Computed example of a mutant assay.
Amino acid sequence: MTKYVLWGSYADDVLEKRAPHRQAHLDGLAKQKEAGVLVTIGPTKDLTKVFGIYEAESEAIVRELIEADPYWQNGVWTEYDVKEWIQAL
């Protein structure tokens, strides 16, 4: 399967904005991980960017997962980009 990299941005008030949606977000990520589509995901230390690696049959599937996430739907993530990734090592 193809690997994809996610780069996205958080809202300026990320800590306050994410609080009511955090558990649903984490539960969804856990399901994606169990299904084998999510390899890893997390914020940068300064909480300005999110980085993730997905393994899926298409970019459209990855975008659907991102856009269904409570963080995207509630403005915690403000923008994102997905690129097909070639893992060299």
Rank of each mutant, 00 (worst) to 15 (best):
S58H: 07
D27W: 01
P43S: 12
I66P: 08
A56C: 13
L47C: 04
A56L: 02
A24P: 01
T40G: 13
G36N: 10
N74S: 03
A88V: 14
I53Y: 01
Q32D: 12
V50M: 09
V14C: 09
W7D: 05
W72P: 03
K3S: 13
S9E: 15
I86W: 15
V39P: 00
L89Y: 14
L65D: 06
Y54R: 07
E84W: 04
Q32K: 09
P70W: 00
H25F: 09
W72D: 10
E59F: 01
V37K: 14
L29I: 04
T44P: 02
E57Q: 12
E57S: 10
Y4E: 09
V5M: 14
A30E: 12
S9A: 11
P70S: 01
V82G: 06
D69I: 00
I66H: 12
G8S: 06
D27Q: 05
Y4W: 01
H25K: 07
S9W: 05
T40S: 15
A60D: 15
Q23W: 03
V37A: 04
E67C: 07
L6S: 03
G42F: 07
A24K: 03
D27M: 01
I86N: 14
T48M: 09
A19I: 10
R18N: 00
V39Q: 06
A56N: 02
V50W: 04
G36A: 05
T2Y: 14
G42K: 00
A30M: 10
I86E: 15
E84P: 02
E57N: 12
T48A: 08
I41Q: 06
A56Q: 06
S9M: 10
T2I: 09
L89Q: 12
G8T: 01
V5K: 08
E84N: 08
A88N: 12
V14T: 00
V5Y: 11
P43M: 05
A56F: 04
Y4C: 04
K45E: 13
E55N: 02
L65N: 13
W77E: 11
L89F: 15
